[in-house]
Structure formats: C-alpha cells, structure tokens
Computed example of a mutant assay.
Amino acid sequence: MDAIKGRGAVTGAASARFNLHAREADGDWLDDAEAIDGPARHPATTVTEEHPRSILSFNKSPDIPFDRSVNAYRGCEHGCIYCFARPSHAYHDLSPGLDFETKLFAKPAAASLLRETLAKRGYKPAPIAMGTNTDPYQPIENTYRITRDVLELCLETRHPVTITTKSDRVLRDLDLLVELAQRNLVSVGISVTSLDPKLSQLLEPRASSPAKRMAALGRLAEAGVPAHVSVAPVIPAITDSFMEAILEESATCGIHAATWIMVRLPHEVAPLFREWLEAHFPSRADKVMATIRSMRGGRDNDPDFFTRMKPKGVWAELFRSRFRLAATRLGITGPKPVLDCTQFRRPSLDGQLSLL
C-alpha cells in the first residue's frame, strides 16, 4: 500500500462503529467520483466553520490532570498517524483516516462563547486545557487565530490556561504568553517524538520539524514562560531510541520538566497505524505491534482508566526506567507549575470586566 506524500494516513478507510461504510448513496455525483476518477492522491485541505452553542467542555476522567478544555478545531492538518483523536471524526460521518487531516472544522466564535461561560455567576475557575484533542497551533490557526483570541480573553479575565502543541507557531503568541506567565497563569507543553526530520515527516507530516520544536522550547524558557517537553508518543522500535537525546536537548534549552506517554491506538487508530507501518516499516511492523500488545494486556489498545496511561510489562518498565534515569541525570525532574486561580475576574458580556 503506497503512502501519500504530505499526509499521515495511507487511506481514507471508513469507520465501522457508526455504519459509515454502509451509508447509502444519495444520488450526488460525488458518490461516484472515486470510481470514475480514481482516489485522489493529493487530497486538498478544506475547512468548515462550525457554530456550536458552547465551547468549554468538562470531563470527569479520573486519570487526567484537568477537568475542562477548549478545542478550537476539529480534525488536524498535522496528520499525526498515531493521533488518538482521529476516531472523533467518525461522529461526523467522516473517515478517521484522510478525512481527519483534510476535512477540518473551525470554531471562530470560540472566544465569544467562552466569555459567556466565564461571565456566569456560578462559574468557578480552574485551568483550561488547550490542545487536548487537536492541536491549537495547526496551520489553519494562521488564518483563524482562534487560539490567540482565547488567550487574549484568558489574559483579560486572569484565567489560567495550559497549552499542548507540536508546533512552533506557539511563539506567535509569545507576547500574550509572557504576560500570562508573569501572573502564573500559563504553562506550555511541546511534544517531541523524534529528532530525525525524515522520520518526523512520515509520522507527523505537517507538524513543525523537531529542530523547530526544540528551538521553541528554548525561546519559551528564555522568555520566562513555564514550558515542559513531552516525549510523546513513544513508539517501540520506531521512536524510542530518541528518548534520551530529546531529554538531553531539552535540558540544553533550559527545560526543567518532562513527561512521556506510550503510544495509544484506540478504535480506528490501530488499523490506520498498521497500514502506516506496512507502508513505511514493513520489516518492523510485526515487532512493533507485538511490543505494543505486550504492554496493553494482549490488545492493540487498553481503554481503561488509569491503565491506559500506564502500560505494563517488561517493555513498559524498560521505557519507564530509561526515562527516569535520563531525566534524573539531566536535572529535568521538576514538577509542572501549579497555576493561580485566585486572580480570576468575571467578564461582562459587553466586554467590560465586572467590579465584583
């Protein structure tokens, strides 16, 4: 199966969970387009504007460190083949494969919707997580600037916010991040999978190069913005060899905190990832999947709370020990900052801050 240059997924395979594969043709010419013209080898990116009624999502998951998040976009042009958010595109009757990285959704009113929520009298502040589902600094942020709008509101209302990204576009908001950091209202995590630009192009075709991500970490640290590196995801026999080197470069950049996450393959991500392995690393495919299953109770993925974030077995202990020893040696074992929720100032809907 041939790879598609500039894209992560090899195919646009439909999801079987919501009967996407069984959708009846409605007579539109697009139903027969692929049969007539053949599959598109270089699918273009399209963006649909979405207008939800609310933007702040709450969760009760017991194994993640935040209870609320803002996702300005659905789908992600970075095209990371391992992205655990891919299955969410099936809810839209779209493929978690190529559709996820080519048919995107933007929420231009995100900051206005968030303002409405923060203005409610019963609202109690806690850090808002951005980048938990899809990247807030993917390429279309250049046009929509939704993430910047949300950060401006957080600065206005003194609301704490955390950011996770794999893009150096985060530096375009450095002015806001510095002001937020001066008030202990922000922390930024940048995930780095490898230090090999060619491998990164295969894994994360439209994300910033590893060198740019490392440089962004250095710029953030130099500017006084609390930043940490996330060695994530670790993929056995593909990226795990870079673990120590990523930590070493991070320490050189002035980073004092680091985390790691083993690759997760929920729902449609597992078959998409297998296709990717067969296209790019066919000789290693069986070894990679066997190692992953050995850490996930014999399955491609462990969906259970707590254990999904804590792989088990010999391989898991090896990766855990390697990370701990390297982080300790390099002095990057610092905790993430505890952000300040006491400065919050409730906004009014006319844009003026409340006196109470």
Rank of each mutant, 00 (worst) to 15 (best):
E244L: 06
L177P: 04
P311W: 05
D32K: 14
E156K: 08
T45L: 12
V229G: 03
D168P: 10
F58V: 14
C76M: 04
N59C: 10
G189P: 01
A85H: 09
F344K: 07
P282H: 05
A9M: 07
A251E: 07
M309I: 09
L155Y: 07
Y137T: 11
L155M: 12
R213Q: 06
S187D: 11
F319H: 09
E222F: 05
K287W: 12
R121Q: 11
P139T: 14
R345Y: 02
M289R: 10
L180N: 13
I292E: 01
I55S: 01
E141Q: 15
T164R: 02
V70G: 01
S241A: 15
F105M: 08
L174F: 11
A290N: 12
A251P: 07
V188D: 02
H42R: 15
E317C: 06
H92L: 14
A110V: 02
P160K: 01
L56C: 02
A9G: 07
E34F: 12
E222W: 08
H21R: 15
A279F: 06
I146S: 03
P347Y: 09
R158L: 10
P303Y: 10
L318M: 09
H280G: 07
P282V: 13
A119F: 05
R158P: 00
H92P: 00
E50S: 15
N59I: 14
H267I: 14
P347A: 00
N301Q: 09
S57N: 13
T117Q: 14
I55G: 00
F58A: 12
G298R: 08
R284L: 15
G97F: 03
L176H: 02
E50L: 07
G254E: 04
D26P: 01
R284V: 11
S191N: 13
Q201T: 12
G334R: 10
S348Q: 07
V229A: 02
L203Q: 10
I81H: 02
T143G: 00
S250R: 01
V170S: 03
C253W: 03
A3P: 10
L176Y: 03
